[in-house]
Write a protein that binds this DNA or RNA. Structure first.
Length: 322
RNA sequence: GGCCUGGUCGCCAAGUGGUAAGGCAAGGGUCUGCAAAACCCUUAUUCGCGGGUUCGAUUCCCGCCCAGGCCU
């Protein structure tokens, strides 16, 4: 990997509707790059409308490959990685994205890792190092049926130290803690995985953040929500249900869950669209909360006249320094 | 003009003579293999306005204003 060690990987991040993809497409054209999407929903096949893989408007040429899309002839990796009922963790993503990054660099092209899933990005870059404990689905299934009190009891008995250090209101956290603790207790190495992630070095990452004032962000997101309801979200959701994915976590998440509700009663379309907008707003807030932690991000305000030019200069400078 | 009902946080809304539930929205935050997930915190010294009764009124009484409904 020596020959590539000086290459920069550009990470384009920002909340939904900040224009990451369209900017990245631009950047690819300009700097001979390829995009890796860091988005925990776009990894799913058959979910194109509700995850924003399909750009709004008709000025886009889309070609779908087996494990990539090409939009306006630029490569986007990280779409359609798994079926909607498949488990896919931040670790899986990091593994995929890291190897894809190396492939792209070997072709002497520039990597634009762009997305809004901060957790994925941080695991990819190594800012967050995951523990060696793999998910234990059997255990999770068993634990899922327990009440919060029962979960608390279990972790308290198993490991009081962990008990006092985690969020005891959050069943998911407790279950994960139990999962880890059970490895420690039982020495069950079936669920131990060495972290074999092949990180690049931290200096190779250049973070580009897209800043958009809240009110503008909300109205852009609202517009997007309206357009997907007009352009096939309901139909796509219906198809996913027909395919047997009705009970998957993805369909219970934001966007799709409201469409599922609508399909059940076909009533109050407008208020469901409203609800979806509110869901998106709070998602945007959560994303921004996450991004705040990373002080290496260089933020660009997209409402500024010359924001693109500023980004070009910024990239140019970093490529040259590389 | 008369009668009735109602005016409680940006919206919906409960409430009682004893010092203002809840939901939504908004804002802040947590997060170390489910993350568009899961979870936590904050937000009316104040109940249309004025006066009265009372130890004490958002709650009772009087007047006014506003909204909706009905009647002539």
């Amino acid at each position: 990997m020596e020959g590539f060690s000086m290459s920069k990987v550009f990470i384009v991040m920002g909340p939904t509707s900040s224009g990451k993809t369209s900017l990245s497409l631009d950047l690819c054209r300009k700097y001979k790059g390829e995009i890796i999407s860091a988005d925990s929903r776009q990894i799913y096949k058959y979910m194109d409308v509700g995850t924003g893989k399909l750009p709004i408007g008709d000025k886009y040429i889309i070609e779908k490959g087996n494990d990539f899309w090409k939009i306006n002839r630029e490569y986007i990796w990280g779409y359609d990685l798994v079926n909607p009922n498949q488990y896919y963790s931040a670790y899986d993503f990091a593994e995929f994205a890291l190897s894809k990054t190396k492939e792209i660099l070997e072709k002497n092209k520039t990597v634009f890792l762009t997305g809004g899933t901060g957790f994925y990005i941080d695991v990819f870059t190594g800012r967050i190092k995951l523990s060696a404990s793999k998910p234990n689905f059997l255990l999770r299934e068993e634990l899922d049926s327990l009440s919060l009190e029962e979960l608390k009891d279990r972790i308290k008995k198993l490991n009081p130290k962990i008990y006092s250090s985690i969020d005891l209101n959050n069943p998911r956290r407790i279950i994960r803690a139990l999962e880890k603790a059970s490895i420690l207790e039982n020495g069950n190495d079936k669920y131990v995985s060495k972290n074999t992630l092949n990180y690049l070095t931290a200096e190779e990452y250049v973070y580009i953040g897209l800043y958009v004032p809240r009110n503008i962000l909300y109205s852009r997101a609202d517009k997007w929500v309206e357009s997907i309801w007009e352009q096939g979200l309901v139909e796509e959701t219906e198809k996913l249900i027909d395919m047997g994915y009705g009970n998957t976590p993805v369909l219970k998440g934001i966007i799709y869950r409201t469409a599922v509700e609508y399909l059940r009663d076909r009533k109050n379309r407008e208020s469901k669209i409203e609800k979806t907008k509110f869901d998106i707003h709070s998602y945007i807030r959560r994303q921004q909360t996450w991004f705040k932690k990373n002080t290496d991000i260089r933020w660009f305000d997209i409402t500024e006249e010359k924001y693109k030019e500023n980004i070009y200069n910024f990239i140019q400078r970093n490529i040259n320094n590389g």
